[in-house]
Design a binder for these strands. Structure first.
Lengths: 188, 188
DNA sequence: AGCAGCATGTAAGTGGTTACATGATTGT
DNA sequence: ACAATCATGTAACCACTTACATGCTGCT
């Protein structure tokens, strides 16, 4: 196996919270990390196989033979700690919004305005969702709660920042074209 | 043609600012979109070929035959507008920091502390960089300046948000393990 | 002559998604 | 009996990166 993959970390991490099937791993990840992470079966099952091969996880008694409940082994915990300790190489910068916005300014459209509006709405929407989750989280306890709060808080901070940024930019934009078609050149 | 739509957009967008070689396209993107976008030659050259095939760009007189300066065509501008108008594609939700932080809470380490510290330092560092860029940008003019300001502003908002979030979380964390390193402060 | 940096391209590999194929279990 | 959903897996493809191969141009 060797390659330190993000998926490996996610799967191993999920299993560190308790024994699960591949199906449940995916559910656990998408429930708990909602907006911030996601795995597909096409990644999960091969990763489970590789992890078992490497002795990091082991099939536990499942009661049924059509499903495989995996359990993390001591070696797996070690591996997980190793992965966590590794310097977190961040994804190559690829922000589609900024890309579009930049090149949008070279076009006669109201494109930049529209993009900023969209960004603003999206952030506002996210904030509403987070507010709803806040209520739920209040019921949780201990570590679970600490995690959820951090995640949530991260989402909120980022959404608020995006909202503020979009509003500032919209306010600063010269009011030339008002959406599609219209004046090409602003200044001469 | 096939649709490497994000790269296609970036390349077409770059060419919308003026004729360029593939090499220059890459430089233009990394200069202007610095932290927010990036293209590799392995993507750029095939994309240029495909765009030429599709009539979106055309080779212009370069003076030398060992380089090909491409120019965007009216059809290319149309294509660019089309791409810009398209509903802004997925951001596949994969935040390595949040992932690690979550599973870090299940381990006895000072892992979460270390991650938050790293996140805080990274944001602080970015802010310093942006401050430097601020000065440069002041010299620019017109559209160029408007773009740079927006980009920069986005970076600043996000970095400040991350900084605030990391600090809040660290303050809220129970002080159990003291982590390995002692270096928490931003350099002066 | 030699080196830095401009310029173009390709092959192999990575890390991931989508769609599909298959079947078991549970609830009504 | 049937549908929903739990569960496992694979094949094909996709966007992109890395490393490599090659050669030109301009400067000292």
């Amino acid at each position: 196996m060797a390659r330190p993959s993000q998926t490996e970390l996610a799967v191993l991490g999920a299993l560190s919270t308790g024994p699960m099937t591949g199906y449940e791993v995916r559910a656990a990840i998408s429930e708990s990390l909602g907006h911030f992470w996601h795995e597909s079966f096409g990644q999960i099952y091969p990763t489970l196989a590789a992890l078992e091969e490497a002795g990091a996880i082991t099939p536990a008694d499942s009661g049924r033979r059509t499903r495989t409940v995996y359990e993390i082994t001591p070696a797996g915990v070690e591996r997980l700690e190793e992965l966590l300790a590794e310097p977190h190489r961040r994804a190559p910068a690829r922000n589609g919004l900024l890309l579009r916005l930049f090149f949008g300014t070279h076009l006669p459209q109201g494109t930049p305005e529209a993009l900023l509006e969209e960004a603003e709405e999206q952030a506002a929407g996210a904030l509403e969702q987070y507010a709803a989750v806040r209520d739920e989280v209040a019921d949780d306890e201990g570590t679970e709660q600490a995690f959820r709060t951090m995640t949530l808080s991260f989402g909120e901070h980022m959404a608020r920042a995006q909202l503020a940024w979009a509003r500032e930019c919209r306010a600063a934009l010269p009011r030339r074209a008002r959406s599609s078609s219209g004046g090409g050149r602003a200044r001469g």
